[in-house]
């Protein structure tokens, strides 16, 4: 083999490697989600509803579950849990709710992002129904009760006796609003379209981009 063919072959391989690594950079995005589920990084919980199969309730054990609501300063809603803390037996199906009120004079869309601490407990916190699976639209000055149904997996490691579930409520009105007439909103709508393209392509959990995509 002459040197220039050898060179070309090697260059081809190396370029392939570089392109492959560029792709790998993006592959890290879904890979990260998988690792988050497995290792409990950042306390990410299940993004779609799980079905509850009747199981043996471990009555010998009580786990505290705490609910925290985070409303960033830019989100003018009132949002909070009905009860802040409850004691549950692992395996027991629990129903609770959060309350939200839109204090402004305009229709707004909110998206709650859950996070469980300690992160290693997140995999054992299973939601069969959650308002965080969808975005929430509230009319001006309207209130809503947002249901949450969950159970704690009986396999929860012994050393975890408190699970804290936090919801951060984000204002995604701008991304969602498609009826506004202003230039700004039009631009934002264009952004939204692209957004859904990307979320679809990279299978991000960006359920806010399209109505009905489950989180």
């Amino acid at each position: 083999m002459s040197q220039s063919t050898q060179n070309r072959k090697l260059i081809g391989l190396l370029l392939l490697g570089a392109v492959g690594m560029f792709g790998f950079g993006f592959a890290l995005v879904p890979l990260y989600d998988v690792l988050c589920d497995a290792l409990g990084i950042n306390g990410k919980t299940n993004e779609t509803a799980v079905t509850y199969k009747p199981m043996e309730v471990d009555t010998s054990r009580l786990v505290s579950v705490e609910f925290v609501a985070m409303v960033p300063g830019k989100m003018p809603w009132e949002f909070g849990p009905e009860v802040k803390r409850m004691q549950v037996h692992p395996g027991e199906l629990i129903r609770t709710k959060f309350l939200a009120t839109n204090n402004t004079g305009a229709t707004m869309v909110g998206q709650a992002i859950p996070s469980v601490s300690p992160g290693t407990g997140a995999a054992y916190f299973n939601k069969t129904e959650c308002f965080c699976f969808n975005q929430q639209t509230l009319m001006a000055h309207a209130s809503a009760e947002l249901p949450l149904i969950f159970y704690v997996d009986p396999d929860l490691p012994e050393e975890i006796n408190t699970l804290t579930l936090s919801y951060t409520l984000f204002d995604i009105t701008v991304q969602m609003d498609s009826t506004g007439g202003s230039e700004q909103v039009k631009q934002d709508n264009q952004k939204t379209t692209k957004h859904s393209d990307f979320t679809a392509r990279y299978s991000l959990g960006g359920g806010n981009a399209e109505q009905g995509v489950a989180r």
Partner: peptide, 8 residues
């Protein structure tokens, strides 16, 4: 302090 997530 990470936006959207809690740390303990």
């Amino acid at each position: 302090a990470n936006p959207g997530f809690i740390n303990e």
